[in-house]
Every structure is written in C-alpha cells, then in structure tokens.
C-alpha cells in the first residue's frame, strides 16, 4: 500500500488489486504539486501489469491541473502500449461524465465503468 495524503484528499495504491483510489477534493496548485501523484501513476505503469485500475468514484472535485495530470498519464500509458486500463467513475459527480470520456479519446482502449 502506498499513500499520498493531503488536507482534503487521499490517493492510495493497493498493489494486490493494482488499483489506485482517489478520494476527496484535489485542488493542488499547478503541475508541480501534482508531480508526486503523476510519478506514482507512472511507476505503476512501468511495472507492465496486465490491468491497472483508477478508482475515481469518491473523487468529488478535480481542478484543471488535476485533469491535465490525468491526461498526461493517459498519453504515457498509450506510449507504454499498456494492455488494459480501467477507470471507475461515479455518475453522480458532474465533472466525471464529460472529462473522462475525453480521456478515452486519448486512449481508445481505456475502459470507463460508471456506477
């Protein structure tokens, strides 16, 4: 288990499930503050796991730098020719519907699961 924790958010990586869970509100200031999270994601990517899951169901808020960080990660995943990436999202959180579908345009094999 690896954990990055801030005032209003938690990012936890569960290696047994190959799942990174995001919770709370991510309002970090700029890409530099998102770098530790992006590094964690890219580290997991470099392990070449058969499946990697991002659980965003409890991520209520993500600012623009945050979605930019996710976009960069998805482009990196495409370069790595990753076999499967699943994003678990919540239909009750307004931003997730549209923004995450756009990420699918960057990586068509990206699997979006809305609860």
């Amino acid at each position: 288990m690896t954990e990055i924790k801030g005032e209003n958010y938690t990012v936890i990586y569960d290696s047994n499930l190959a799942t990174i869970s995001f919770q709370g509100s991510l309002r970090l200031g700029g890409m530099s503050e998102y770098q530790p999270i992006l590094d964690l994601l890219n580290d997991i990517l470099s392990k070449n796991l058969p499946t990697m899951t991002l659980d965003l169901q409890e991520l209520d808020f993500l600012n623009s730098s945050g979605i930019s960080m996710l976009s960069k990660f998805i482009i990196n995943a495409r370069k790595h020719q990753v076999s499967q990436i699943i994003i678990k999202a919540s239909a009750n959180i307004p931003w997730q519907g549209k923004s995450l579908k756009n990420l699918q345009r960057l990586l068509p094999i990206l699997q979006l699961e809305f609860s």
Binding site: I67, I75, W95, S99
Partner: peptide, 18 residues
C-alpha cells in the same frame, strides 16, 4: 493530443464552474 487536452480542460473548467 493537445487539441483533446485543451477541449478536456475547457469542458472540465465549465463543469467545475457549474
């Protein structure tokens, strides 16, 4: 990619704003 990112950021900004 950049066009998609710009579009994503713009739409994301609008949704977050709402």
């Amino acid at each position: 990619d950049l066009e998609i990112i710009i579009e994503t950021l713009t739409e994301h900004g609008d949704i977050i704003d709402t």
